[in-house]
């Protein structure tokens, strides 16, 4: 979150379970982070399961990145 405050585009990859916590921390720090939410958990997944998480989140990341770049 500190990176966004310093002008860096910094999407945070977070699992659903941690989303409320990250949102609460963002509120406390008065920042509105870019969030890339993936299903919980991530640790303990097999390679195939992990590839599924990457597949599921990639489109949103590219959209977010293109949008940030377009605005600069």
């Amino acid at each position: 979150m500190e990176l966004e405050r310093r002008g860096v585009v910094a999407p945070l990859v977070v699992t659903e379970t941690f989303l409320p916590l990250v949102q609460a921390q963002a509120q406390a720090r008065r920042v509105q982070p870019r969030l890339l939410v993936v299903p919980h958990p991530v640790g303990g997944l097999t390679g195939t399961e992990l590839a599924g998480r990457i597949e599921g989140a990639a489109a949103e990341l590219l959209r977010m990145a293109d949008e940030a770049r377009g605005q600069s």
Binding site: E2, V8, L61
Partner: peptide, 18 residues
């Protein structure tokens, strides 16, 4: 690390919670 990343990069993808 935060100083280095913010000076050197335009975009940083961060893993925060699992």
């Amino acid at each position: 690390q935060i100083d280095w990343l913010s000076q050197r990069f335009k975009m940083v993808l961060v893993a925060v919670g699992d």
